[in-house]
Amino acid sequence: MTAPSTDTPAVSAALALGDDALVLSHRLGEWMGHAPVLEEEVALANIALDLLGQARVLLSMAGDEDELAYLREERAFRNLQLVEQPNGDFAHTIARQLYFSTYQHLLYARLAAGDGPFAPLAAKAVKETAYHRDHAEQWTVRLGDGTEESRTRMNRACAALWRFTGEMFQPVEGVDVDGAALEAEWLASVADVLRRATLDLPEGPRSGAWTAGAGRQGLHTESFGRMLAEMQHLHRSHPGASW
């Protein structure tokens, strides 16, 4: 199956937001058993579980959660390219969390305040994403203002992921928020965290011909297909089975 054929704005939006949460949850799940301290095994798993919970609600709004997660091809996924980026080192994971959880928290705060189809989900998710954002901000500051090595790694990670951040503010059909205002607030917040972390605000472009809005159109980066192959393999090997 490719994208659901009955694409209404609400379905498109549920897929976009649901895929973000699903894919990032999967990436965080890859950390389990590999985290630098036990407390982070717990924290990263906790965030992954919150995101998976959001993904299940959102995908269920668009169709059958398992069909959508396990039987779509890469080109039918609508997630941001940011969330599919490989974990890299802990700094890379934290930079991805900082960029995404700040966006998600600001977005859900707006959706929770409205009366659209996502308001009930957003009311719960805004509390979870506040925690995710706090976790990412604290680690950004710790790593930035930690040792020479941790600052170097954190600067490198923030710069490497910067070009994927513009996509978050492209309009998404069915998501009724003011993208420009969201972006301004996001930039101010991230810049403040990086300043407190004694880190450099990356200077490169935040979008390019390929990255701008590409994930939302089903155009992904190369590692994503491999991630899906692993995620979907067992489910696809037993067509029609229930688990």
Partner: peptide
Amino acid sequence: WITRAPSLRRKAILMAKVQ
């Protein structure tokens, strides 16, 4: 098996367990 769990429900259960 977390990254290969065959349904989202099973994946959530397994992640919670490992946590």
